[in-house]
């Protein structure tokens, strides 16, 4: 449904996106993950035809974004970073206008507007001025606008920004329900967001793809080592040093009574030796627990590794 190959976008001398290539299959929900300024929005703007790429091609719903922008726009629903809503319009009038812009036949306009209001839970505010709505509702109006013409592809730039926790859950469920029928790309710098809704994530940083996989595989693949934490009664430096000598230990950090232990991948079996050594050295083990590597860590790892390589390379 979406093919992007060697996409590069420069803003003057600044490269926003560099040699990006990826593919999204029909019905898939893909998450774009990256820190602020990584090039997520730029990529999305290119995909919607809002901005031309400096080089490379993008194909959406079977049409080249540059050659056939109108065809692409017909098949794409887009929610930009800032919901493109007119504050002086009523919700219903605004959606009616958006429906006309998307050339929905006048006979079907009413049903389309009602459907979008229903899906995004805007029923209570349909006659309200958008300018008087909260950020969360405005975001939903923006989302309703993107869904209105039942597009094949939905491009959502940070769809849950500004929503309260209950609304976030609702919108996530809505997005999940859209998968299968629609192809969805959403961007976020919040990980649980992506974990909750997407089947596959593309991590981008500094305009480049640094990882692209399913969430499970990404977390396991990127577990560089296992981290454990131990709380001790007598944190004597000499005793802690004895832990460092155990083969398979990558790093030991001592911070007061808390000792952080990083074990090299594949050496999990030395855990009992660690505890044994600690007890023998007289540290007095109070607690020993595994620190789970979350997607958050993976994300930070990925993006910081990338930063280090680029700074040393430059």
């Amino acid at each position: 449904m979406i093919q992007v190959s060697h996409l590069t976008k420069m803003y003057g001398p600044r490269t926003a996106v560099q040699d990006l290539s990826f593919e999204v299959k029909s019905g898939e929900i893909v998450g774009f993950l990256g820190p602020n300024g990584a090039g997520k929005s730029t990529t999305m703007k290119v995909l919607t035809g809002l901005m031309p790429a400096t080089s490379g091609t993008a194909n959406v719903a079977g049409f080249d974004v540059f050659e056939k922008p109108l065809e692409v726009k017909r098949n794409v629903g887009y929610l930009p970073e800032n919901p493109p809503v007119y504050s002086e319009m009523q919700v219903e009038d605004y959606l009616d206008f958006a429906a006309r812009l998307h050339q929905i036949p006048s006979a079907a306009t009413k049903a389309a507007v009602a459907g979008a209001i229903e899906k995004t839970g805007l029923g209570d505010v349909r006659k309200r001025l958008i300018g008087n709505l909260s950020k969360g509702y405005r975001q939903r109006v923006g989302l309703a606008q993107a869904l209105l013409h039942n597009p094949k592809v939905l491009i959502l730039d940070e769809p849950t920004v500004g929503l309260d926790p209950k609304q976030i859950i609702e919108i996530r469920q809505l997005i999940k329900s859209l998968g299968g029928e629609h192809t969805v790309i959403l961007s976020s710098h919040i990980l649980p967001e992506v974990t909750a809704t997407c089947e596959r994530i593309i991590v981008i940083n500094r305009g480049k793809i640094v990882a692209e996989d399913t969430i499970e595989r990404l977390t396991t693949r990127l577990k560089k080592g296992l981290i454990y934490s131990m709380t001790v009664r007598n944190p004597q430096p000499a005793a802690i040093d004895s832990l460092r000598r155990i083969p398979g230990i990558k790093a030991i950090t001592a911070e007061g009574a808390r000792v952080g232990i990083e074990i090299a991948p594949g050496a999990e079996e030395i855990r009992d030796r660690v505890v044994e050594t600690a007890v023998k050295a007289g540290l007095g083990v109070l607690e020993f627990s595994a620190e789970r590597v979350s997607l958050e860590d993976v994300f930070l790892q990925l993006t910081t590794i990338e930063n280090e390589t680029t700074t040393t390379g430059a």
Binding site: T48, L50, E71, K73, P83, P84, V85, L101
Partner: peptide
Amino acid sequence: KQHTIELLMTSPVT
């Protein structure tokens, strides 16, 4: 200013 230009520019209108 309101970013609504993005709505117009991403709609199938020239």
